[in-house]
């Protein structure tokens, strides 16, 4: 082969190679696309399943009355209320500490051992399995502090569990406030706390609220931590009536219907209804938080 012929052959090989590479690239990308669809697919499927099976169980009676006849009939209203009280109470207990931690981490912390230790603490708490929180809640609130199996114990246990989420979200919201605001306030002779109170916090409130909503959404769906600290299935008085009494919540009611009740197959429509209500609440809360968050981000005038 002459030198020219060799050059031409090289060109041909390169083009061949390029074609092959684009074919394999196309194949790879298609595979990837299909693979990534799985996530969408499952979400869509689960939502569809919940709605189609559960919507039929929903009616006014279901949402406003208590379970009857060994939970085969009636509604889940006390459980809805129980969930609301438990979650709201948990948020009430956790928020002061979470916000305080976030403020310290974002505004006051000095570089050093304590800062690292607290960060490790928050991150580690985030990794503790929910049932371990249940065990600790049992040991601490139910037994050691003597609250007994009660709404209060459940609230406190859930509060511990929600701490990492609330701290992270609040800290993020605080850090999003531009530094220039802080400098402007300090240069006018404001003390640190005054500056935080009048400039940083008001600006960060939307983000903090979004974080609370997310925390609430997570707490509402939890079963394991409250299983032996707060809940009971088939109580004589299922309506939440005291801080020191047991309560029924949505997720635990579902668990009870499946595992505790002897009539697993007869209560199917109640199960679907419970799942429906739970999913509606959780999805709405999350969507609200997500939309709110993106609106706040876009609206920023600075």
């Amino acid at each position: 082969m002459t030198k020219e012929q060799r050059e031409i052959q090289k060109e041909r090989d390169l083009i061949e190679g390029r074609k092959k590479r684009s074919v394999s690239q196309w194949a790879a990308f298609t595979l990837l696309g299909i693979g990534s669809l799985f996530g969408f697919f499952f979400l869509a499927f689960i939502l569809y399943w919940v709605i189609s099976q559960g919507a039929s169980a929903i009616n006014w009676e279901f949402l406003t009355t208590a379970p009857r006849n060994l939970a085969r009939e009636g509604g889940i209203a006390p459980m809805i209320l129980g969930s609301v009280y438990m979650t709201g109470g948990a948020l009430l207990v956790a928020m002061p500490f979470a916000l305080g931690s976030a403020i310290w981490l974002s505004e006051y912390a000095w570089k050093g051992w304590w800062l690292r230790a607290i960060r490790v603490g928050v991150n580690t708490l985030a990794g503790v399995p929910s049932i371990v929180f249940g065990l600790v809640g049992l040991g601490l609130f139910v037994v050691a502090l003597g609250f007994g199996v009660s709404l209060l114990s459940g609230m406190c246990t859930l509060a511990m569990l929600s701490l990492p989420i609330l701290i992270r979200a609040s800290e993020e919201a605080l850090r999003a406030v531009p530094r220039s605001f802080r400098e402007g306030a300090l240069a006018l002779g404001a003390t640190r706390w005054y500056m935080i109170r009048t400039v940083v916090l008001p600006t960060a409130i939307p983000g903090i609220l979004t974080g609370s909503v997310l925390g609430m959404a997570r707490a509402i769906g939890e079963t394991a931590p409250i299983m032996f600290t707060a809940t009971a299935f088939m109580m004589t008085n299922p309506w939440p009536h005291s801080l020191f009494e047991k309560v029924g919540t949505l997720p635990y009611h579902l668990y009870g219907l499946i595992k505790i009740s002897q009539h697993y197959n007869e209560t199917r429509h109640i199960q679907y209804g419970t799942v429906f209500v739970l999913m509606v609440v959780v999805t709405l809360l999350n969507l609200t938080a997500i939309i709110w968050r993106s609106r706040v981000r876009r609206k920023k005038a600075w």
């Binding site: 220039s180 402007g184 240069a187 006018l188 002779g189 009048t198 400039v199």
Partner: peptide
């Protein structure tokens, strides 16, 4: 105390996310 006697204006305007009145009134309010 020093900073009320020596004021500062920054490189980029940094008004607070408040009204015009509240911005100016921030200092006296402190």
């Amino acid at each position: 105390v020093l900073r009320h006697k020596i004021g500062m204006v920054f490189q980029r305007p940094n008004p607070f996310p408040k009204s015009i009145f509240d911005n100016v009134a921030y200092g006296p309010r402190i």
